[in-house]
Design a protein around this nucleic acid. Sequence first.
DNA 1: CATCGTACTGACCGATCGGTCAGAGCTTGA
DNA 2: TCAAGCTCTGACCGATCGGTCAGTACGATG
Lengths: 190, 190
Amino acid sequence: MTTRDTILQAALERFARTGYLGSSIQQIADDVGTSKSSVLYHFESKEALLEAAMQPAIDAMSALVAALPQTGPDKLEAIPALATGFVDVLMAHSAAVSVFVTQRGALRDVPVIGRANALVDEIASTLVQEAPSARVLTRVSIGLAGVAFILGDGLDDEREHVDPAEMREIFIDTLLELCLPQPQSLERIR
Amino acid sequence: MTTRDTILQAALERFARTGYLGSSIQQIADDVGTSKSSVLYHFESKEALLEAAMQPAIDAMSALVAALPQTGPDKLEAIPALATGFVDVLMAHSAAVSVFVTQRGALRDVPVIGRANALVDEIASTLVQEAPSARVLTRVSIGLAGVAFILGDGLDDEREHVDPAEMREIFIDTLLELCLPQPQSLERIR
DNA sequence: CATCGTACTGACCGATCGGTCAGAGCTTGA
DNA sequence: TCAAGCTCTGACCGATCGGTCAGTACGATG
């Protein structure tokens, strides 16, 4: 692996663990055993380093959205595939997801964060089929945010390790359930 | 309102909008029209300011948890009340929720953040009734995280304003639905 | 009037930040 | 052999950070 790629990976992990503002270029350099100047040789600024580190996740999510049918009845049938793809991309880029979830407010002026926000909006509006009631919209938002938050969270935690395949299935099922316009019954509990 | 309370409120809003590390004492002082020294006169450090700003939300959530029945069949019946209380506290302290959701990783060493984490764990374990399968545990986590994330997010956004009472109802319903061990049917969509 | 505690301020401190720059070490090809 | 180019480094810069401190303004109390 090239020095550049090593820096990229270490930076993403640092940003996810201690935040963008809480991570200094010097710390990232120490993580990979090089100098601060070396980091700034490969990336022209700290912000450029963040952009480069987030780009693969953005690309994967963009590809997912681009493959969606734009109109017609196919759109409804695409929902399960979209939910599956969404979960897969998030699980494959959990560090980038963590950075986005926790930094999107403080870093709203950084272009790459803005692009990620636009993608999320697009996915949410697709998962909400037909007439978007406030109820379905909110339910889908809870699902997307909840899944993203959990996936971005379990990085350094010593959380008990559940089988990733099982987690994937639960995420997808729950997401699809929340896309349904109405819950069937709540009598069992209230 | 006293100067101290004014600082407290301005600090919480700043921390929620630009993050703890992204907010300087000088900026907070400017927000309230006083000096940096004045802020440090009322609060012995920046971290103490964060603790004081988060404390009301922590207290409200603690009171909610403390009111729970510890054992017996009452525990199951307490679930709807807990979900309702959880949503109400979050809506009443959305700025503090935003700080917690976005900063809990980077600020894991700050005591007040640790206390908040413990509270969330307690709520989650109560919402999961009886034998906690990975499925129910994950579903509840998605609900808690999703609701918290959305409530902490909509501060400065120009998001279309839905009726807060309607949002509250949707949040509670969705949370309770996710506490159910199994979804009834997904055939309508997949 | 003198005194004391509270509220507040500007000047200042050391540390750390992101970033610049001149140059060292090394490989490659003419 | 030497020039060019890529990788990398330490020294250094101005700015800003959280925090300290001596001192000021002022109302209440004796």
